[in-house]
Nucleic acid binder design. Sequence first.
DNA 1: GGGGTCATGTAATAGGTTACATGATTCT
DNA 2: AGAATCATGTAACCTATTACATGACCCC
Lengths: 205, 205
Amino acid sequence: MKENRAKKRKVSNLLALAVLSYLVQGPRHPYELSRMLRDNDDGRSIRFNHGSLYMVVQQLARAGFIAAQETTREGQRPERTVYALTEEGRREQRDWLCGLVEEPQHEYPQFVAALSLIGALHPDEAVGLLRRRLERLDGRIAQTRDLVDGASALGVHPLFSVEEEYRLALLAADRAFTERLIAQITDPEDGWAAEWARFHERQDP
Amino acid sequence: MKENRAKKRKVSNLLALAVLSYLVQGPRHPYELSRMLRDNDDGRSIRFNHGSLYMVVQQLARAGFIAAQETTREGQRPERTVYALTEEGRREQRDWLCGLVEEPQHEYPQFVAALSLIGALHPDEAVGLLRRRLERLDGRIAQTRDLVDGASALGVHPLFSVEEEYRLALLAADRAFTERLIAQITDPEDGWAAEWARFHERQDP
DNA sequence: GGGGTCATGTAATAGGTTACATGATTCT
DNA sequence: AGAATCATGTAACCTATTACATGACCCC
């Protein structure tokens, strides 16, 4: 019997967690949520597109985490259905959010995949690409830095930029790792390049 | 007009890149691929389950990146179709892999999402959870370290553990960040806790 | 007053995961 | 001989992304 790792959520899309979290503050209709998400630039942290939002809202309603309250219509615009959090939903959002904070998740960043296959490249080429990566990383770091500084200049409390600070920490680590990797490959004493190249000849004509 | 960022791949599942990469070494049938992926423990780097593999192979065939070669049958086992890389497929794998190495991708780690919503928790609770996170991170670091050391002890060239080294770098950065964050919240001089708590009262009865 | 783009939502399609199926092999 | 597990694949079911629709508002 296995321990119940990361119990399967009835709705697993992270967008749903955002929706639940916004609904804590009161009932909203989907478009309002969509708007709040865009305004807070949550799209940088949570995969989000218009279509998925409606889907997620449906799923949440079906799962009993939110309930449709009323359907109003204003002028000739389409009807808007207002949803409110249920008790269940409230519990789900707390439990989910707490879980994410306390338990690091196993993720699948693309660069991990790339590294696991990088042996298929010739070492010289790999080094070239890694050098380019360094530059791109610097670009992203600068960009993100600007974002945070911009918010700070507007008087936003750093609590609301904390996810971007985390990104910066990851980017810095990525950069340092990439640099180290280049060094390991190209070290003239006992770098990997020679052996890697030999191994490469043999399997890739 | 927008610059063509990360041109959309006809098949975007990373599992497909792994398949293409393995096929560089010669034609294989799907089960063989499945087996190789499992043996190399690629499941840690690339989201993989049995079902998706067959799907991805189909997609690749439809896209013209691989072609069915022959259909053999052995004893009474189901037929096995052997696939080979096409010229197009060969190009795709190089282009894709190079792209992933040189260009850092915007990702959506779950913890980023959690941080972007963490304001919904009471600061004291958040700190507790972050402390727990530190322990779990240490656990994962130790585990991963063991994995790498184990391989190394078996004489595996470090090139083939490089993706796990990268993970270690990220985990270390995560740990350092988490520690810093706890400190920022709890600093007795000008920690965020007080203001955060006030702000929290107001919106979460 | 016609061309964008905002507001609001539904429907069609493609993608991914789980469950199901079934002969073969191996273990006890 | 029956149980477990391997080998191999298909089908059903969710999920997620795109495309489509349409009235309102705003800009020149």
